[in-house]
């Protein structure tokens, strides 16, 4: 019994002594930190994705606290709601942000864009892209090796095994931009999520001339500029044989998609069209060569 008591007493004394030392040291070397940083950090989603441009949520929190205004500071994961909360903590106003989402601008599935050679190197888009134009006739499109999937920390992007194209999970995507950076072909773009998740975009990045692009892929943008002519809001630009819909100008009128001869303009989350699209769509495939 006395042995046990002696042991308890000794260990207790050592413990108390150590605790005392620790306390004194922590008092002496205390680092004064703005308590709001912790508060802000608690309000953040703690994803540490780096989508804000800072290395992790703690750094972003510190940046928010030290910044004069919240202009330009945005947490893409938490969105407006989180930024409003951060603003409330800091007694400032958050800049207005629009919810964005990653969009894969390539529809060249195995069926639409037949493989012309077999890639047999290390399974990374970045390695294949440095080697050559890719295993299809299109040297701009998706390589299908999934660098974007590896880069996503939110499990929001996956390869569709049938099309061999990545697909973004709208519910999980936080627009952190990791996949945009990972893609060596610059196919993925952050676009406005749009009202009720509705959006229209050109799902192609091929800059080849129409004939070449069309030969490589059935759903390539051939640069015919029909969409540009039909757009009532000047929202479509043509550059390098490629149409591009400007997010901020597009009013989702849906006039462009039906005129596209190759169906390279995608409409997401819209109700199905009532009237059948103009007959012109089916026929002639104009090629600007």
């Amino acid at each position: 019994m006395s042995v046990i008591l002696a042991a308890v007493a000794t260990l207790g004394a050592i413990g108390a002594g150590s605790a005392g030392i620790l306390y004194l040291v922590s008092q002496k070397f205390k680092v004064e930190e703005d308590p709001r940083i912790q508060e802000v950090q608690d309000a953040l989603p703690a994803a540490n994705c780096g989508g804000c441009g800072f290395p992790g949520c703690a750094a972003f929190a510190a940046a928010c606290v030290h910044a004069e205004s919240l202009e330009g500071l945005n947490c893409p994961v938490g969105g407006q709601e989180t930024m409003d909360r951060v603003a409330a903590i800091l007694g400032q106003t958050a800049s207005k942000t629009t919810k964005k989402i990653a969009v894969v601008r390539c529809s060249g599935s195995c069926e639409e864009r037949p493989r012309q050679n077999l890639y047999d190197g290390a399974s990374r888009c970045s390695i294949a892209a440095a080697l050559y134009g890719g295993d299809t006739g299109c040297s701009f499109g998706c390589l299908g090796l999934g660098d974007c999937v590896d880069a996503c920390t939110f499990d929001a992007i996956h390869m569709n095994p049938e099309t061999m194209l990545p697909e973004v999970d709208e519910d999980k995507c936080t627009a952190c931009g990791a996949c945009v950076k990972a893609c060596p072909k610059d196919i993925i773009e952050l676009r406005k999520q749009g009202p009720r998740s509705r959006r229209i975009y050109v799902s192609c990045v091929n800059e080849d001339k129409g004939g070449v692009a069309r030969k490589a892929c059935n759903v390539a943008c051939i640069g015919c500029s029909k969409c540009q002519q039909v757009c009532p809001f000047d929202a479509i630009t043509m550059e390098n044989n490629l149409a591009y819909i400007i997010d901020d100008k597009c009013r989702l009128c849906r006039k462009c998609a039906p005129v596209c001869p190759t169906n390279s303009i995608l409409e997401i989350n819209f109700p199905p069209r009532k009237e059948t699209p103009p007959a012109a769509k089916e026929k002639e495939v104009p090629i600007t060569a």
Partner: peptide
């Protein structure tokens, strides 16, 4: 015009 070379790019 564009032509493919050994790099696989046009």
């Amino acid at each position: 015009d564009k032509a493919m070379d050994a790099s696989g790019y046009k």
